[in-house]
Amino acid sequence: MAVHDRRYKPYTGETTALRSRFLVLPRYAFKDVFKSRWLVFFLGLTVLPPLIFGIMIYIRNNLDALDRLSQLGLDIGSFYSIDEGFFANFLRWQYSFAFFLTLFVGPGLVSRDLANNGLPLYLSRPISRADYVIGKLVILLTLSSAITWVAGLLLFGLNGNMTTWGWMFENARIGFAVFVGSFLWISLLALLALSLSAWVRWKVIAGFMLLAFFLVGTVVPQVINAFFRTDWGHILNAVQLVRIVTAKMLGTTPPDGPPFFACIIALAVMAGVCLLLLNRRIRAYQVVS
């Protein structure tokens, strides 16, 4: 390494593509994320449900295994079947894991830069504000995707492989619901985490606010529903909205709440507010008029 020559020399080498420059942000962030042993342990835990559901698919489709279990008096066929309900259960687990994963990783991604005036350093380079936000979203979306829709589609594919490919075509809506439902949920979580941490600029407080958003979002709608004798209070409950949307797409019975399109609009409004907040906060310098 040429550190013996301590005069200033300009850089004259090649440069990387401008379009993919923002991917530097997730690459560095992943290294930081995986430094935490707790997070690695947690990520290990998130693999358990896909593993258990995978074993269930294997047993359900393996005649030998079914025979042996029935000889032991366990009639698996009456316990569960691989259908919409099976994937709805799987998603319920993974949605919870995605929430806690976002809670661990999300708040520190932006607040760390904002708290130390790091944004001018990023934004004085060929990186736009949108690139910066996308770079940070990629981190959360990649991690959450791995444990939600990617794992879900792998299970879907496993069952298709163990039964017939025709099953996959007949139940294509399950695969679609797993992907779209998961993506809606993890996108909303990622936007909330980034916008709250951009707003408060403090990792711990941002984490508490994210937790509070969902806790308050569960309690307040119940009060509204009880007071006005309606189900529309759930329009404020992001968890319920995503559950309704996912259930409708899967074809299972949705929980109480507003109709499908009202849920979609409410989720879009929540995402819009997050983007608005990010647009106001992700600036090299705040201008006080």
Binding site: G13, E14, T16, V24, Y28, L121, R125
Partner: peptide, 9 residues
């Protein structure tokens, strides 16, 4: 990191 954001491999 700043160098990479500016385009250096």
């Amino acid at each position: 990191m700043m160098a990479e954001l500016s385009g250096l491999p």
